[in-house]
Amino acid sequence: MPKYIVRYGSMRNLGVFSAKGTSDYRRGTQVIARTGRGMESGEVLSEATEQALAQLKDPFRGSIIREQTEDDRREIFRMLGQQRQEFEACGKRIAELGLNMQLVDVEHLYGGERVIVYYLAEERVDFRELVKVLATEFQTRIEMRQIGVRDEAKLLADYGDCGKPVCCNTHLSEMPPVSMKMAKLQKATLDPTKISGRCGRLKCCLRYEYDTYQDLRRELPPIGSSVITDKGRSKVLSQEILAGQLLVETEDMRRVMIDASEVLTVIPKPKGGGKPKPKQSKPSPPPPAADSSEEE
Results as ranks from 00 to 15, higher is better:
Tyr4Leu: 04
Tyr4Ala: 03
Gly9Trp: 03
Ser10Phe: 09
Met11His: 03
Met11Pro: 00
Met11Ser: 03
Asn13Asp: 13
Asn13Glu: 14
Thr22Met: 11
Ser23His: 10
Asp24Glu: 14
Arg26Phe: 05
Val31Leu: 06
Met39Tyr: 02
Gly42Leu: 01
Glu43Ala: 02
Leu45Asn: 09
Leu45Arg: 11
Ala48Trp: 04
Ala48Asn: 06
Thr49Leu: 07
Thr49Asp: 14
Ala52Pro: 07
Leu53Asp: 05
Gln55Ser: 15
Gln55Asp: 15
Leu56Asn: 09
Lys57Tyr: 07
Arg61Pro: 03
Arg61Cys: 12
Gly62Gln: 04
Ile65Ala: 07
Gln68Ser: 10
Thr69Lys: 02
Glu70Met: 00
Asp72Asn: 12
Arg74Thr: 08
Ile76Gln: 08
Gly81Met: 04
Gln85Ala: 15
Leu99Phe: 07
Leu99Trp: 03
Leu103Met: 06
His108Gly: 03
Tyr110Cys: 06
Gly111Val: 01
Ala121Ser: 15
Glu123Gly: 15
Val125Phe: 01
Asp126Glu: 11
Glu129Gln: 13
Glu129Trp: 05
Lys132Leu: 05
Gln139Cys: 08
Glu143Val: 02
Arg150Ala: 12
Arg150Gly: 12
Glu152Arg: 11
Ala153Gly: 15
Lys154Asn: 04
Leu156Trp: 01
Asp158Arg: 12
Cys162His: 02
Pro165Gln: 01
Cys168Glu: 02
Asn169Arg: 14
Leu172Pro: 01
Glu174Arg: 13
Lys181Val: 13
Met182Gln: 08
Met182Cys: 12
Leu185Pro: 05
Leu185Trp: 07
Ala188Phe: 10
Thr189Val: 01
Thr193Ile: 08
Ser196Gly: 02
Ser196Cys: 03
Lys203His: 02
Cys204Gln: 01
Leu206Asn: 00
Arg207Gly: 06
Arg207Leu: 01
Glu209Phe: 00
Glu209Cys: 05
Asp215Cys: 06
Leu216Val: 05
Pro221Val: 05
Ser226His: 11
Asp230Cys: 05
Asp230Trp: 04
Asp230Val: 03
Lys231Phe: 04
Gly232Arg: 02
Arg233Lys: 14
Ser234Trp: 01
Lys235Met: 04
Gln239Ile: 05
Gln239Asp: 09
Ala243Met: 07
Ala243His: 02
Glu249Gln: 15
Asp252Asn: 15
Asp252Leu: 07
Met253Cys: 11
Arg254Cys: 10
Arg255Met: 08
Met257Val: 15
Ala260Met: 08
Ser261Gly: 04
Leu264Ile: 10
Thr265Arg: 11
Gly272His: 07
Gly273Ala: 10
Pro276Ser: 13
Lys277Glu: 15
Ser281Arg: 09
Pro283Ile: 11
Pro285Lys: 14
Pro286Lys: 12
Pro287Ser: 13
Glu296Asn: 10
Glu296Thr: 07
